[in-house]
Simulated scan of single mutants.
Amino acid sequence: MNSLTSVVCDGPEVGYQFPPSYRFYSPAGGIEASGCFMAITTPAEASGPNLERDVLQAFAKAQAAGLAIWSMMGTVQVMSGEPCVRLAQTLEGYRHWVLDEQGAETEEGELCIEGRSLADGYWQRDDLTEQAFVSWQGRRLYRTGDRVRRVAEDAFQYLGRRDDQIKLRGFRIELGEIEAALRSIDGVQDAAVRLLGEGEEASLVGYVELREDGPGRMQIRRMLQRNLPHYMIPGRIVRLTTLPKTASGKIDRKRLPEPV
């Protein structure tokens, strides 16, 4: 990765695109922005530990340097006072829709893409093609699996993956929202949340990877209570030296230990 960074920064090109796992192989463990390049995440992979924080910092540096930032969906803007990156101004040839579970247009739901460049489907995977490519009001759409909120005309805020939404005692909960709240706590390096148990025994468990001066369990819970409703506060907080990772650097949720 040292050699890759050298090639990127020393070369004449002005833009590069990397998946989120790039940060795990970067010597500094983060994303860089300079006059020569900007490392941008792609929608094909979920974001990794503290990636949102790194991206916001990199975007701010790039904008200060007068660089334009784009995703495959549209221009990316860091909105003042918002803890998120807003996607807006859809690229020519694309259109985006937000649909609920019944397929009706809504303000908050699953992001679906319409465009001339949509693939015919997954290679030799009719089951996946049937799930992801749908016909809607005479249009052919691709279901991204991403949950978004429409915040303005042709502007969206990312909320998390559809697969990360669970239901606990009648409440719909985005696990990614709890994880983001945990990662925002000073001293928390990384975090994961899972639902354990069934029925009345079901409960949320939060796993945190702390820095040396990281907060204690009660302190973490108090900080979460400032920003989350009571039903989204994990019943247990498990502190780990490191969260288990896959070979690509993602959290390996199957290896998260049972709380003792």
Rank of each mutant, 00 (worst) to 15 (best):
M1E: 07
N2S: 05
T5E: 15
S6D: 04
C9W: 15
D10A: 14
D10W: 12
D10Q: 14
P12W: 15
G15Y: 11
G15R: 13
Q17R: 15
P19I: 10
P20H: 02
Y22W: 11
R23F: 13
R23K: 09
R23D: 06
A28M: 14
G29P: 05
I31M: 14
E32K: 09
F37C: 10
I40K: 15
T41S: 05
T41E: 11
P49T: 07
N50C: 04
N50T: 12
L51I: 12
L51N: 12
E52I: 04
R53C: 07
R53F: 08
V55P: 10
Q57L: 13
Q57R: 11
A60L: 07
K61C: 12
K61Y: 12
A62Y: 03
M73R: 15
V76E: 06
V78N: 08
V78Q: 03
M79G: 02
S80H: 11
G81Q: 02
E82M: 06
P83M: 08
C84M: 05
V85L: 12
V85Y: 01
R86Y: 10
L87M: 10
L87G: 06
A88D: 13
L91A: 02
Y94V: 10
W97G: 13
V98Y: 01
E101V: 05
G103M: 08
A104E: 08
L111I: 05
R116E: 15
A119S: 11
D120R: 15
Y122F: 11
T129V: 05
Q131P: 08
V134W: 03
V134C: 03
S135Y: 15
S135R: 14
W136R: 04
Q137Y: 09
Q137I: 02
Y142T: 02
Y142I: 13
D146Y: 09
R147S: 09
R147A: 12
E153N: 10
E153T: 12
A155S: 05
A155F: 01
L159F: 03
R161H: 01
R162S: 11
D163F: 12
D163M: 14
K167G: 04
L168E: 02
R169T: 00
R169P: 03
F171P: 05
F171C: 14
R172P: 10
R172K: 07
R172D: 09
I173Y: 04
E174Y: 06
G176D: 08
G176Y: 06
I178W: 04
E179Y: 00
E179W: 00
A180H: 00
A181Q: 04
D186R: 04
D186K: 10
D186L: 01
G187K: 03
V188H: 00
D190L: 01
A192Y: 03
V193D: 00
G197A: 00
G199W: 08
G199A: 01
S203P: 10
L204E: 00
G206Y: 01
G206W: 02
V208P: 00
E209H: 04
R211D: 12
G214C: 02
R217N: 10
M218I: 10
M218S: 12
M218R: 06
I220D: 02
I220H: 00
R222M: 13
Q225S: 14
R226Y: 01
P229S: 01
M232V: 06
M232W: 07
L240F: 04
P244C: 07
P244I: 06
G249I: 06
K250S: 08
K250W: 12
I251W: 09
I251C: 11
R253K: 03
K254E: 13
